[in-house]
């Protein structure tokens, strides 16, 4: 029982981080971005590619000599690759915006952007297949050894691999950093203002274009982090982001569109619900859980947990 809770929290942390970018772009650019799931995929594959590049530059022996970090399944090269991939994924998001969304924002309804994002998502996902092939991959071939976190006597106990613990810790750090950014920095406050009302924000002299740029960078960066988390705890596949898209939407709507902390909370709840549903309805239908939660939210509280009515 407790094991399902712990597994759900790990998955939920990934969904939550991924949903932050989705909820921000939704609130600031005012459209449901179906490309967001692919940003997770792109981030994971960029990290994977950079890791191969770093390994190639240093030589396999040198990397092996560096070893892994403590009990973790990966070493410093992965951390370096991730730190490089985070801004790069943000740039990819900016590039998609410049090529496609920015051109459509001017004329036509916002819903045209949704179609464009749907098309861009499929194109991007299959571009990954063209570049990497369709087969799944892993960041590390090390066999993870799960450690007992809660002894078996208490509710069946819980075990976590060191990588899963790292994911939970890093997710907490990322959320804290995001919270500080949004509440203590000028650009963060400007982002919240634009999310609230773009017109009013422009009237009081906020540079909306700059805010849009930062939204893509931050949303893309967090998506990259979530993608790598997913790669560390599950695997890397071209489908990975697309399969997570419904949970991401469900998390942002559950948390309340435009609320980053709501998205994290929503993500954790969706992760828990998916994991706890496994003993009830079987693993085959776990993907339907996010849909069920989504329908319930739309039915009972369409503005979400932390969102405002209207």
């Amino acid at each position: 029982m407790l094991q399902y809770v712990v597994d759900g929290l790990v998955l939920g942390a990934t969904i939550g981080l991924g949903a932050v970018g989705l909820t921000l772009t939704y609130a600031i650019l005012r459209f449901a971005n179906f490309t967001h799931g692919e940003l997770l995929t792109v981030g994971a594959y960029l990290t994977h590619g950079l890791l191969a590049l770093i390994t190639g530059l240093l030589g396999a022996e040198a990397v092996a000599a560096l070893g892994r970090i403590g009990p973790l399944g990966f070493g410093w090269p992965l951390v370096l690759a991730l730190l490089l991939a985070i801004p790069l994924t943000g740039l990819v998001a900016l590039l998609i915006d410049a090529l496609l969304f920015a051109r459509l924002r001017g004329h036509g309804a916002a819903i045209t952007l949704v179609i464009a994002s749907f098309g861009a998502a499929l194109a991007l996902r299959h571009l990954v297949v063209v570049a990497y092939g369709p087969n799944p991959d892993y960041f590390s071939r090390a066999i993870p050894i799960a450690l007992t976190v809660v002894p078996r006597e208490i509710l069946g106990g819980a075990r976590l691999t060191p990588d899963q613990m790292a994911v939970l810790a890093l997710a907490a750090v990322a959320v804290l950093g995001l919270h500080l950014l949004l509440t203590r920095t000028t650009i963060g406050r400007a982002m919240r203002a634009v999310a609230e009302s773009p017109t009013l924000a422009a009237v009081i002299g906020i540079e909306v274009r700059k805010v849009v740029r930062w939204t893509w960078l931050i949303g893309g960066g967090l998506a990259c982090l979530a993608g790598v988390f997913l790669g560390l705890t599950v695997q890397i596949r071209p489908q990975m982001g697309f399969d997570l898209l419904l949970p991401l939407f469900a998390a942002s709507i559950l948390g309340g569109i435009g609320s980053p902390l709501g998205a994290v909370l929503g993500g954790l709840l969706i992760g828990l619900a998916e994991s706890l549903a496994v003993p009830l309805i079987g693993a085959d239908y776990r993907a339907a859980v996010a849909f069920a939660v989504l329908i319930l939210v739309l039915l009972l509280r369409p503005q979400g947990l932390l969102g405002r009515a209207g």
């Binding site: 459209f31 449901a32 179906f34 916002a110 819903i111 949704v114 898209l245 419904l246 939407f249 709507i253 993907a287 339907a288 996010a290 849909f291 989504l294 329908i295 739309l298 369409p302």
Partner: peptide, 14 residues
Amino acid sequence: QDYLAIATFGVAVV
């Protein structure tokens, strides 16, 4: 408007 998009996407997945 886009909630319909998300919901119908969910229908296809389910």
